[in-house]
């Protein structure tokens, strides 16, 4: 049971949040210019990182804001939490 520090509301139980998968996957600006392979990569293929993973969470039962978390997917330790558009802080090691 994770405890996640919402950048707007503070620490809350995991049950208040919803998970959005890998962060920093930017939607292509001109999808029509991509071939099937490039589009498929954007749609489905993921790093699925074992270790430090940048991911999106939404405080869906709270402020409903999306933000980013760097979390270790093995220990589940949260290394850093930052708002969309910001850069991660904290110990990246």
């Amino acid at each position: 049971m994770l405890e996640i520090e919402c950048p707007w509301c503070g620490s809350r139980d995991q049950d208040e949040f919803s998970y959005g998968g890998e962060a920093h996957i930017v939607r292509p600006l001109s999808p029509e210019n991509l071939n099937d392979r490039e589009w498929g990569d954007y749609l489905f293929f993921r790093d699925n990182k074992k270790g430090q993973h940048a991911e999106q969470w939404c405080h869906s039962a709270g402020c409903r804001r999306w933000f980013n978390v760097i979390r270790d997917t093995v220990s589940y330790r949260i290394v850093s939490v930052y708002r969309s558009g910001d850069s991660p802080s904290g110990d990246p090691s």
């Binding site: 498929g40 993921r46 699925n48 997917t73």
Partner: peptide, 18 residues
């Protein structure tokens, strides 16, 4: 569950999440 880890060793990614 470790498919992506091995895929990375192979130099590609997979459409899976663990």
């Amino acid at each position: 569950g470790h498919a992506s880890v091995l895929a990375e060793m192979g130099g590609f990614r997979l459409p899976v999440e663990s």
